[in-house]
Nucleic acid binder design. Structure first.
Length: 927
RNA sequence: GCCCUUGUAGCCCAACGGAAGAGGCACCGCGCUCAGAACGCGGCCAGUGCAGGUUCGAAUCCUGCCAAGGGCACCA
C-alpha cells in the first residue's frame, strides 16, 4: 500500500489504532467480503427461485441503468448510487424488505466503436468494462443484491426484450376501449364481420398476405416508409428524441437528414393522452413533468376546411375563434396540394422557391427568421364569410406539424403579422387588444371583434361557439393535435437486440413464435456500422447484420412446413433494454416468464387507490427526461393493458440528482492543464510558476479535471468519500467538487472513532455511565432529526446532525462516552458510512450485522424543553428576553414579556396596540 | 423570444412566515507538543442578487429587474 501522501514521514507517530485511510481500507474490504459471503443484502421474493420470508413492508429503490463505459467512473457518477444506497440502508435498518441492485445497459455504440478500433468483439470489451465497473462500485460499499445483477446483452435478458417486442407487435390500440388489445381479437372482429375491411370485402375473401397487410396497419409496431432521421456520420437512423434542437444527432453531433426509409416504428402516439394525463399521478420533479408535457405537445384546436376550386385545404389551428381574421393561407413547401393548385403563371416561381427551401437545412430555417414565401396564384374561400383569400407557399410552415397548412391570422399571430407586413397583406384584428396595447399581433385575452356572430365573446367561449358552428356546417371539427411522433425503433447497428421478425417471399413481416426466442446475435466478420461522409445525405443505411448472409437466410417451420425466410437485419435502439429492466430486477432468473406476477405485484404493484404503482424511488440524471422515461412508461402501459403487469407506471417517484462539476484550468495557449496540480495564491491560480485561468464545467478527460472514486477510496476510504459526497449539499443540487474539503469528513469519522475506540490500544472506551440530561437531549434531538432527514433525502443535514452530536460527545466525555449514546450514534451513522459503523458495532459487542437494524427511535420526553426562552421584540426589534415554563399559557407569556425591564421601559405605561405571542418562538409587541 | 430552477460569510451549504447559522473547508489565536496536525479549546467572517409590495414580523409569500444554470424554440 502506498504511504498516505499527507503524512509522509510521521507514519510511526500515528497511533496504531487511529482511523486512517489505511485502516479504513482494511475495515471496508473485510465488511464487503462479509456482506457478500452472507448475502446480507439479498431481498427475498414472494415466489420463485428467490423466494423467502417477505415482510409486507417493502421498498424498491433503483438507480438509472448505467452504461459500463470503458472510461471508468469519476466522482460524479456514484452520487446517485450512494444516495439510493443510503436511502435503502436506512429503510432496511428500519425493518423493510429492500430491493436494491444494479445491472448494466450494455448494448450501444461506444462498445462497437471501441471494438472497431481494437479488433475485439464488442461483447469482450463490454464484459471487461462491466468487471471494471463492478470492482469500482463494490469498493463504495453499495448494498446491492448481487443475485439480481442483469445485463441487457445477456441472451437470457434480451430474449424477454424480444418477447415484449412481440407482445407489442401482436397488439393494436383500441381507441374506444382506451387500451391495447391482442391483435388476435382484432382479427376475430374482422372475421366475424364486426369490423369492415378497408375495401369492404369479407375477411375470408382476402389472401393471407392481404390479411397481414390489413392487420399491420393496426399493430403497435409497424413498418413505415415515412421520412426518418438519417445520420450518415453514424451510419444509422435515430429517433426524433435523439435529434437536438439544431438538427444534429445527440450522439456524435452529426448532421441529420430527413429521408424516406422503410423502418420499424412504435405507435407511442396512441398513448399520448395517457402519457400526459398520468403524469399527474406521479411523484416526479415538475421540471421533468413539464418537459414530457412539452414533448408530447398536446394542443386543443380545430381542423378547418378551406375550399380552393374543387380542392380543399385542411388546416389545424388552436385559435379557431380568430377565423374571421384569416386574411391569407400558407402551405408548407412540401405540401402535396402545392402542385395541384398553383396557377400556370406562378409555377416557375413556386418551383424555384420549393427548390431553395428543400436545400435549406433545419438549422438554416431556424437561424433566418426573416419570413420568405411566394404566391401560388390560387385563392381559398374562408368558410365563415365566403371571402376569397390568397394562398402562399412559405417555409415558416412546417410539413411535419398539424396538416402542413395554416390559415394566417396576422392580427393575433406574430409570425403571420411579420409575413403579412412583408407581403403587404391585410390585417384584421379579431380580439380587442387591451387598452394601451401598442404591439403588433395581439395574443392576449379580450372580447372578439370584427367576427360576426362571435363579437363580444371571450376567447374560450368564442372557440367553442365557432367549433360548434364548423361542425354543424361541415366545415371542420374540434380536434387535438400532438407534437409527439411515433417512435422510430430500428437502428442499423450490430451491437443491439436483433428483431424477432422474419420476412416471407411477399416481404410480409412475420413474428417468430416464443419458442424460437432468443434470436441471438450472429458472429460477423465486421461489426462496424457502415458510416459515410457526415454531409452526404444521398447515402443508404447498411446494417452490419445484413452482411451475415447465412444468418439472414433461414429455413424455418412456422406452421406451414419448412420454408425459406429472411431475417430482419436491423437491431433495436439502445433504449429497448432499459424500458423494462425494473421488472427483471424483480425476477432476474425466471426462465418461464419475464417476471412472475406475484413478485411484480409485491414489488411494483399499486399500494392504494389511484396509485399507479412502480419503483418506490428512482434516482438518476435529468438528461433522460424525455427519452428513457417516456419510452419506459409507454412499454409499461402496453404491458399493463395486456394484463402482464399490475402497475400502470414504471417509476412512482423520480428524483434527479445534481451534477458534480469541477474547476478546470487553461494556460495562455488555451490548453488544459492537470487541475490537481494547480494551486491558488492570492486569488490567482498557478500551474507551477505559470498563471492559469479558472473555468468550471463537467468532469472529463479533455478538461483534465477528473477525480475518481478509486483515488478517493485510496486516500481517504470509502466511508469518508461517501460521507463527504453526501454532505456537500442537497442531492438535487449541482455543485463543484473540492478534494481539499474531503478531509472534513475524514476528521469527523476519526473523532467519532476516537470517542469509541482507544487509538493506542484499540480497546473500546465507552462507559456504562448513565448519560446526563443534556446529552440525552442532544441524542434524541439528533435521532428525531436524522429520521426526518434520511426519509427526505436530506443527507447533508443528517450528516451535520451526527457531527453535532459527536462534537457534543468529544467536548463532554474525554474519558469515554456512555455506551447507549455510542450505540445509537453508530446506528445512525450506518446508512452513510456502513463499514465503519459495522466495525464499531461489532467492537461494541454485537455479533450480528447492523444492516437490518436496529435503528434508534427518539424519546419524546427529551424533545420537549422544561423552560423556553422567548425573545421579546418591540416593533420588530429584539429588546429583551424572558424565560418561562414550557407549559406557560399565552397570557402568562404576554404578562411576563410586558413585565420585562427593558420592554416595560419602552412601553412606558402606555397600552401596546398589539401583542403577538408565537408559542415556543417569540413575543412581538407593537406600539 | 418563451418556460423552469437557483442566488445566504472567502468557498460548499443550514434555517415550520418568528432571534440569520446546523455542519464542513479556508483563515486566526491559545493549549498539547522537540516539532507538526488528519489533536483539544476558542475565535473571525454574511444581514440573505437588486428594487418594490403583503405582514406585527420576510432569506422564506407576491411583482418587476439583474445574474447563473437547464429545457424548448417559426409546433399554427
Amino acid at each position: 500500500m502506498s504511504p498516505d501522501p499527507q503524512t509522509p514521514s510521521a507514519a510511526d507517530a500515528v497511533p496504531s489504532h487511529r482511523y486512517t485511510a489505511e485502516l479504513a481500507g482494511r475495515i471496508e474490504k473485510r465488511w464487503q467480503d462479509h456482506w457478500e459471503e452472507r448475502g446480507t443484502y439479498h431481498a427475498p421474493n414472494p415466489v420463485g427461485p428467490l423466494k423467502g420470508e417477505v415482510p409486507a413492508d417493502k421498498l424498491f429503490v433503483q438507480d438509472m441503468f448505467p452504461y459500463p463505459s470503458g472510461a471508468g467512473l469519476h466522482v460524479g457518477h456514484p452520487l446517485g448510487f450512494i444516495g439510493t444506497d443510503v436511502f435503502a440502508r436506512y429503510h432496511r435498518m428500519n425493518g423493510r424488505n429492500v430491493l436494491h441492485t444494479m445491472g448494466f445497459d450494455a448494448f450501444g455504440l461506444p462498445a462497437e466503436q471501441y471494438a472497431v478500433q481494437t479488433g475485439q468483439h464488442p461483447r469482450k470489451t463490454t464484459e471487461d468494462n462491466i468487471q471494471t465497473y463492478l470492482r469500482q462500485i463494490r469498493r463504495l460499499g453499495l448494498g446491492h443484491d448481487e443475485r439480481r445483477r442483469i445485463s441487457t446483452i445477456d441472451p437470457n435478458y434480451y430474449r424477454w426484450t424480444q418477447w415484449i417486442f412481440l407482445q407489442i407487435f401482436n397488439s393494436w390500440y383500441d381507441a374506444d376501449a382506451g387500451r391495447a388489445r391482442p391483435i388476435a381479437e382484432l382479427e376475430a372482429e374482422f372475421a366475424l364481420g364486426k369490423r369492415n375491411t378497408p375495401d369492404g370485402r369479407g375477411w375470408c375473401e382476402l389472401t393471407r398476405a392481404e390479411q397481414y397487410a390489413v392487420l399491420n396497419e393496426y399493430r403497435l409496431v409497424y413498418l413505415s416508409d415515412a421520412p426518418v432521421n438519417w445520420v450518415p456520420g453514424l451510419g444509422t437512423v435515430v429517433a426524433n428524441e435523439e435529434v437536438t434542437a439544431d438538427g444534429r444527432s445527440e450522439r456524435g453531433n452529426f448532421p441529420v437528414f430527413r429521408k424516406n426509409l422503410r423502418q420499424w416504428m412504435m405507435r407511442i402516439t396512441a398513448y399520448a393522452d395517457r402519457l400526459i394525463d398520468d403524469l399527474d399521478r406521479l411523484d416526479w420533479p415538475d421540471k421533468v413533468k413539464a418537459m414530457q408535457r412539452n414533448w408530447i405537445g398536446r394542443s386543443h384546436g380545430a381542423r378547418v376546411s378551406f375550399p380552393v376550386g374543387e380542392h380543399v385545404i385542411e388546416v389545424f389551428t388552436t385559435r379557431p375563434d380568430t377565423l374571421f381574421g384569416a386574411t391569407y393561407m400558407v402551405l408548407a413547401p412540401e405540401h402535396p396540394l402545392v402542385d395541384v393548385i398553383t396557377t400556370a403563371e406562378h409555377v416557375d416561381a413556386v418551383a424555384e422557391y420549393r427548390r431553395v427551401a428543400a436545400n435549406k437545412s433545419d438549422l438554416d430555417r431556424q437561424e433566418n427568421k426573416q419570413k420568405t414565401g411566394v404566391f401560388t396564384g390560387a385563392h381559398a374561400v374562408n368558410p365563415v364569410d365566403g371571402k376569397e383569400i390568397p394562398v402562399y407557399v412559405a417555409d415558416y410552415v412546417l410539413m411535419g406539424y398539424g396538416t402542413g397548412a395554416i390559415m394566417a391570422v396576422p392580427g393575433q399571430d406574430q409570425r403571420d403579422w411579420d409575413f403579412a407586413t412583408k407581403f403587404d397583406l391585410p390585417i384584421i384584428r379579431t380580439v380587442q387588444p387591451t387598452e394601451g396595447f401598442d404591439g403588433e399581433a395581439f395574443t392576449g385575452e379580450g372580447p372578439a371583434i370584427n367576427s360576426g356572430f362571435l363579437d363580444g365573446l371571450e376567447i374560450d367561449e368564442a372557440k367553442s361557439t365557432i367549433i360548434a358552428w364548423l361542425e354543424e356546417h361541415g366545415h371542420g371539427r374540434g380536434t387535438i393535435q400532438y407534437k409527439l411522433r411515433d417512435w422510430l425503433f430500428s437502428r442499423q447497428r450490430y451491437w443491439g437486440e436483433p428483431f424477432p421478425i422474419v420476412y416471407d417471399e411477399d416481404s410480409q413481416p412475420i413474428a417468430l413464435p416464443e419458442s424460437m426466442l432468443p434470436v441471438e446475435l450472429p458472429e460477423v466478420e465486421d461489426y462496424s456500422p457502415r458510416t459515410f461522409d457526415p454531409m452526404d445525405a444521398d447515402t443508404e443505411p447498411s446494417p452490419p447484420l445484413s452482411r451475415a448472409a447465412e444468418w439472414v437466410e433461414v429455413e424455418l417451420d412456422l406452421g406451414e412446413g419448412k420454408k425459406k425466410y429472411r431475417r430482419d437485419a436491423n437491431t433495436m435502439p439502445n433504449w429497448a433494454g432499459s424500458c423494462w429492466y425494473q421488472l427483471r430486477y424483480v425476477d432476474p432468473t425466471d426462465t418461464e416468464r419475464f417476471c412472475e406476477p406475484e413478485n411484480e405485484q409485491y414489488w411494483l404493484g399499486p399500494r392504494s387507490d389511484g396509485d399507479p404503482g412502480g419503483v418506490d424511488l428512482y434516482i438518476g440524471g435529468v438528461e433522460h427526461a424525455v427519452l428513457h422515461l417516456l419510452y419506459s412508461r409507454f412499454w409499461q402501459k402496453v404491458l399493463f393493458d395486456l394484463g402482464h403487469v399490475s402497475a400502470e407506471e414504471p417509476y412512482r417517484r423520480l428524483f434527479n440528482q445534481g451534477m458534480i462539476q469541477a474547476y478546470a484550468y487553461v494556460d495562455e495557449r488555451g490548453v488544459y492543464v492537470d487541475a490537481s496540480k494547480v494551486v491558488e495564491r492570492d486569488g490567482k491560480y498557478f500551474f507551477g510558476d505559470q498563471e492559469v485561468k479558472q473555468e468550471y464545467g463537467k468532469m472529463g478527460k479533455s478538461l483534465r479535471n477528473v477525480v475518481t472514486p478509486d483515488e478517493m477510496c485510496e486516500t481517504y476510504g470509502a466511508d469518508t468519500f461517501r460521507m463527504y459526497e453526501m454532505s456537500m449539499g442537497p442531492m438535487d443540487v449541482s455543485r463543484p467538487w473540492a478534494t481539499k474539503d474531503v478531509v472534513g469528513a475524514q476528521r469527523f469519522l476519526q473523532r467519532l472513532w476516537r470517542n469509541i475506540v482507544d487509538e493506542e490500544t484499540g480497546e473500546v472506551r465507552v462507559t456504562d455511565a448513565e448519560p446526563d440530561e443534556a446529552t440525552l437531549r442532544a441524542l434524541h434531538k439528533a435521532i428525531a432529526g436524522v429520521h426526518e432527514d434520511y426519509s427526505n433525502l436530506r443527507y447533508n443535514t443528517a450528516g451535520a446532525k451526527l457531527i453535532e452530536l459527536n462534537n457534543h460527545l468529544t467536548k463532554n466525555f474525554t474519558e469515554g462516552c456512555p455506551r447507549v449514546v455510542a450505540e445509537a450514534m453508530v446506528q445512525m451513522l450506518a446508512p452513510l458510512c456502513p463499514h465503519v459503523a459495522e466495525e464499531l458495532w461489532s467492537k461494541l459487542g454485537a455479533t450480528e450485522s447492523l444492516a437490518h437494524g436496529p435503528f434508534p427511535t427518539a424519546d419524546e420526553r427529551y424533545l420537549v424543553e422544561d423552560t423556553v426562552e422567548y425573545p421579546i421584540q418591540v416593533n420588530g426589534k429584539v429588546r429583551g428576553r424572558i424565560t418561562v415554563a414550557a407549559g406557560a399559557s399565552q397570557d402568562e407569556v404576554k404578562a411576563a414579556a410586558l413585565a420585562e425591564e427593558k420592554v416595560a421601559a419602552l412601553v412606558a405605561g402606555g397600552t401596546p396596540r398589539k401583542v403577538i405571542v408565537v408559542p415556543g418562538r417569540l413575543v412581538n409587541i407593537v406600539l
